[in-house]
Simulated scan of single mutants.
Amino acid sequence: MNIQIFGTKKCFDTKKAIRYFKERGIKTQFIDLKEKGLSKGELTSIKQAIGGLDNLIDTNAKDKDTLALLQYIVPENKEEKLLENQHILKTPIVRNGKKATIGYAPDTWKTWE
């Protein structure tokens, strides 16, 4: 199993996800979205695993201007805008190969073990 956890150090659910895998002795790679964001390939892979780009967007994010812009932007440009503004992604994004989850999802992670 190759677990990657994308999130921020301040995110409570990201901390819970890291702890979940650590308690089970599963090695993870933590990627802080504030320091190093998702690549275009990673975003595409996650988007396919979770059923679309809209599922990745945190509608409660503080950046209301970017959220409003994403509602009206043409779908072709939405992915590019998300890559530029990764602070509006829901976290944690947990990836295991082609599988991915958003948020704290231990029920799904159990099926990966």
Results as ranks from 00 to 15, higher is better:
residue 1 M to G: 13
residue 2 N to R: 15
residue 2 N to S: 15
residue 2 N to Y: 10
residue 2 N to W: 08
residue 3 I to R: 00
residue 4 Q to W: 10
residue 5 I to F: 02
residue 5 I to D: 00
residue 5 I to T: 09
residue 7 G to A: 06
residue 8 T to H: 07
residue 9 K to C: 03
residue 10 K to Y: 14
residue 11 C to Q: 04
residue 11 C to K: 03
residue 12 F to D: 15
residue 12 F to E: 15
residue 12 F to V: 15
residue 13 D to F: 12
residue 14 T to D: 04
residue 15 K to M: 03
residue 16 K to V: 07
residue 17 A to I: 12
residue 18 I to V: 11
residue 19 R to W: 06
residue 20 Y to E: 03
residue 20 Y to V: 01
residue 20 Y to G: 00
residue 20 Y to L: 00
residue 22 K to P: 01
residue 24 R to I: 00
residue 24 R to L: 10
residue 26 I to S: 03
residue 27 K to Q: 06
residue 29 Q to G: 05
residue 32 D to E: 05
residue 32 D to V: 02
residue 33 L to H: 07
residue 34 K to Q: 09
residue 34 K to M: 07
residue 34 K to I: 05
residue 34 K to H: 09
residue 34 K to G: 06
residue 35 E to C: 03
residue 37 G to I: 03
residue 37 G to F: 06
residue 38 L to M: 12
residue 38 L to A: 08
residue 40 K to M: 09
residue 41 G to A: 12
residue 42 E to P: 02
residue 44 T to F: 13
residue 45 S to L: 13
residue 46 I to M: 04
residue 47 K to V: 06
residue 49 A to F: 12
residue 49 A to V: 07
residue 50 I to K: 01
residue 51 G to W: 13
residue 54 D to G: 10
residue 55 N to W: 14
residue 55 N to T: 13
residue 56 L to T: 04
residue 57 I to A: 11
residue 58 D to R: 14
residue 58 D to L: 12
residue 59 T to Y: 11
residue 59 T to C: 10
residue 60 N to Y: 12
residue 61 A to I: 07
residue 61 A to V: 07
residue 61 A to R: 03
residue 62 K to P: 08
residue 64 K to L: 08
residue 64 K to C: 07
residue 66 T to G: 03
residue 68 A to F: 08
residue 68 A to R: 09
residue 69 L to D: 05
residue 70 L to W: 02
residue 70 L to V: 01
residue 71 Q to N: 12
residue 71 Q to H: 10
residue 71 Q to S: 11
residue 72 Y to T: 13
residue 72 Y to D: 12
residue 73 I to W: 00
residue 73 I to C: 04
residue 77 N to A: 12
residue 77 N to C: 04
residue 80 E to S: 06
residue 80 E to A: 10
residue 81 K to F: 09
residue 81 K to Q: 12
residue 82 L to A: 04
residue 82 L to W: 05
residue 82 L to T: 01
residue 84 E to V: 05
residue 87 H to F: 08
residue 87 H to Q: 11
residue 88 I to A: 05
residue 90 K to C: 02
residue 93 I to T: 01
residue 95 R to E: 00
residue 97 G to I: 00
residue 98 K to T: 02
residue 99 K to N: 11
residue 100 A to D: 02
residue 101 T to H: 01
residue 103 G to S: 05
residue 103 G to Y: 03
residue 103 G to D: 06
residue 104 Y to V: 13
residue 104 Y to D: 09
residue 105 A to D: 15
residue 106 P to E: 14
residue 107 D to C: 05
residue 107 D to H: 13
residue 107 D to A: 15
residue 107 D to S: 13
residue 109 W to L: 02
residue 110 K to R: 06
residue 113 E to W: 12
